[in-house]
């Protein structure tokens, strides 16, 4: 059921560093079209360092034009995400997702609520007032994470070489928990390139 095909033409390019590599993944749907907002995470078999994970993007889920912005936000476990409202209307953000169940009841323009995500997983955000509003926060426990751009490309730098598990998640992916994992040997040569083909709902 959760079919995803790894049409892998693996070409590993050695990086300058011998123990890390940059992983490039291209995600397409069954029709070969690029899929944006697919979250790719890599968990090295050796584990990750205990030090706090920091990403280059802000931990903010903005509500603007009756939509969550960004649509998908990757945050590390323990991160506190701010929910600023830039619309003129009020929003009532909620999540029934297991990793984080919360409600940010009726806050208005220029009001900001925040919530701290303590468990990894995908959190689906909705607004109880506006059914069309949908956003996702992917809580990850690895520093190697990124989401595909409009062209379906994501590049994760400095991935620890060695065996690892590559997990791809997308809110509409036809799979349990909307995600799929693959075993991956990250070569230390510096560059790993993958193309992933997903089935979407």
């Amino acid at each position: 059921m959760s079919r995803f095909a790894l049409i892998a033409c693996v070409g590993a390019l050695m990086a300058a560093q011998t123990n890390a590599a940059t992983l490039s993944v291209h995600v397409v749907d069954a029709g070969g079209q690029p899929i944006p907002d697919a979250v790719v995470t890599i968990r090295p078999a050796t584990g990750t360092s205990a030090q706090p994970i920091r990403f280059a993007w802000r931990m903010t889920m903005l509500q603007k034009d009756i939509a969550f912005n960004p649509h998908v936000l990757i945050v590390p476990v323990g991160a506190t995400v701010a929910f600023p409202n830039e619309d003129k209307v009020r929003h009532h953000v909620y999540s029934f997702s297991k990793p984080a169940r919360f409600e940010l009841k009726l806050f208005g323009r220029d009001e900001t609520r925040s919530y701290t995500f303590t468990a990894p997983g995908a959190v689906a955000l909705g607004c109880n007032i506006h059914d069309t509003m949908s956003g996702f926060i992917k809580v990850v426990d690895t520093p190697f994470a990124g989401k595909t751009d409009a062209a379906g490309n994501v590049s994760i730098p400095s991935v620890t070489a060695g065996p690892a598990t590559l997990t791809v998640w997308h809110p509409r992916m036809k799979a349990k928990d909307n995600e799929a994992s693959f075993a991956l040997l990250v070569s230390p040569s510096g560059e790993v390139s993958r193309e992933l083909r997903l089935s979407l709902r």
């Binding site: 689906a124 909705g126 949908s134 909307n178």
Partner: peptide
């Protein structure tokens, strides 16, 4: 007839 329950993803 069926109606999707979305929270906000289809559950």
């Amino acid at each position: 007839t069926a109606a999707e329950i979305r929270a906000p993803v289809t559950i």
